[in-house]
Design a protein around this nucleic acid. Structure first.
Length: 437
DNA sequence: GCGATCAGAT
DNA sequence: CACATCTGATCGC
């Protein structure tokens, strides 16, 4: 399939159909209320939330895809003018409300773009998703998997969300006299808040725009904007800081909980050496974290093993809407793609999924790998540009046959000119600062 | 002055 | 480091 037919979460000129996996800002940059380029395909829940984020958007351009069934669209080859039939299926991505993966098939082959996704093994919802995917893949081998590689490193381990949610509840119940604030984004982590509300039989405070979102999602009696009704408040994550907590504690005893798969980084403040540990990597988070309170802070009561209290007022709980490393591995084993490409493209921390999972993919069977590496040295045009993981001091790269290359260029990979330029600029900076590599 | 874009911070 | 998002500065009209 040629370039310029389809874009997933990319909004540059030149495609005939655009696909939106979910409504987080990093997947909609470039998309505006004045959009007229072409139809946008998304899930029903995303379509419902869409006008709230993009007021005055011309809604006739939105196309809802129901989950789990094939939809056909007919595109036109820009070069030959001939019709190209494309089928697409949206599959629950278990990320935030409305988030889906897109599975495409056509004469070009079969492509799967996960968007952002979480692939938990045991929840009922996850089992359903697994069945849907297996059924869809029954007759199709995935040529290229575009993968949410956010946590594509074995050091990223965290429990299922159900477990993490209970940890949050346990923290709250162990602070019966405290106000609680929880840092969240504009979308996502609703299940966590529902779990808290159910377990403790309380309402949860949210800020007014967030309440509107909750209402659009169909939650009507659980959330409130009246501070007096509850001691648990979900606040915007960007407003959540040590200073915020220090300030709140001058009024009432308050603790903060930050739910994230990432270890939370605290930078020491000048002249304040009371307590601060930098959790620079989850590698450390499993071993030692201690404040003046010592180990009792580390494990509060029984099941709170991965909960970190890294400040007297702040707890970090590993509640993540992205897949951990082992879940990514499970997913790749299930899909068995010929090739994998990461969709998280932030400059310096990109990990090529093939670095860890190449051996699970058709194109990198050991027997072929050596052959391809030899070819690479000769500079064949089937080479995908290499990415470096300088932290590991290793270079990872992918090799595909020419036939595959055309598919690679198709989906989810063409970036806007701006982002290319920006990345190039950052690349220059990096090169200046860390030229040792 | 306004919207779009970018750097920087949380 | 990054998650996803905000603020404030700058750019182009």
């Amino acid at each position: 399939m040629e370039k310029g037919l389809i874009s997933v979460d990319r909004w540059a000129e030149g495609s005939q159909a655009y696909f939106l996996t979910h409504l987080h800002a990093d997947h909609t940059q470039g998309l505006t209320s004045t959009w007229t380029k072409a139809p946008i395909f998304c899930s029903r829940v995303t379509a419902k939330l869409f006008p709230f984020k993009f007021p005055n958007f011309k809604l006739s351009l939105l196309r809802v895809l129901d989950l789990g069934s094939w939809h056909s669209l007919s595109l036109v080859s820009p070069s030959t003018g001939s019709k190209i039939a494309v089928q697409v299926m949206a599959i629950d991505a278990h990320h935030c409300p409305g988030a889906v993966m897109f599975l495409f098939r056509g004469e070009f082959g079969c492509l799967l773009n996960t968007g952002d996704f979480r692939w938990e093994k045991n929840s009922e919802r996850a089992k359903l998703g697994r069945e849907t995917l297996l059924n869809a893949l029954k007759d199709n081998a995935v040529d290229v998997l575009y993968l949410d590689n956010t946590y594509c490193n074995p050091s990223y381990e965290f429990p299922p969300r159900e477990v993490a949610a209970q940890q949050v509840v346990d923290i709250i119940t162990s602070h019966p006299e405290h106000d609680i604030i929880i840092g969240i984004d504009t979308l996502g982590k609703e299940d966590l808040l529902l779990h808290i509300s159910n377990a403790l039989n309380i309402k949860i405070w949210v800020w007014p725009e967030r309440l509107q979102t909750m209402h659009l999602l169909g939650f009507h009696d659980i959330f409130t904007t009246k501070t007096s009704l509850t001691r648990v408040r979900a606040v915007p994550r960007y407003s959540f800081s040590i200073e915020t907590l220090e300030g709140l504690n001058t009024m009432r005893p308050t603790i903060g909980i930050i739910p994230s798969g990432l270890p939370w980084v605290v930078k020491p403040l000048e002249g304040d050496d009371k307590f601060f540990y930098s959790l620079l990597s989850s590698r450390y988070s499993r071993s030692k974290v201690s404040s003046k309170g010592g180990k009792q802070n580390d494990k509060i009561k029984g099941n709170l093993g991965s909960v970190k209290r890294f400040h007297r007022y702040i707890y970090s709980v590993q509640y993540s809407d992205h897949s951990c490393y082992l879940e990514i591995e499970e997913f790749i084993k299930l899909v068995q793609p010929t090739n994998v490409k990461g969709i998280v493209s932030s400059s310096s921390c990109y990990v090529d999924p093939l670095y860890y999972f190449g051996c699970l993919c058709g194109v990198n069977q050991p027997s072929q790998r050596l052959h391809h590496q030899h070819q690479k040295k000769e500079g064949g045009d089937g080479v995908v540009p290499a990415r470096t993981n300088s932290k590991l001091g290793r270079v990872s790269y992918t090799e595909v046959e020419k036939k595959r290359q055309r598919v690679v260029d198709l989906l989810g990979v063409h970036k806007s000119k701006v982002s290319v330029l920006r990345r190039a600029r950052r690349g220059v900076k990096l090169a200046e600062n860390e030229c040792s590599d």
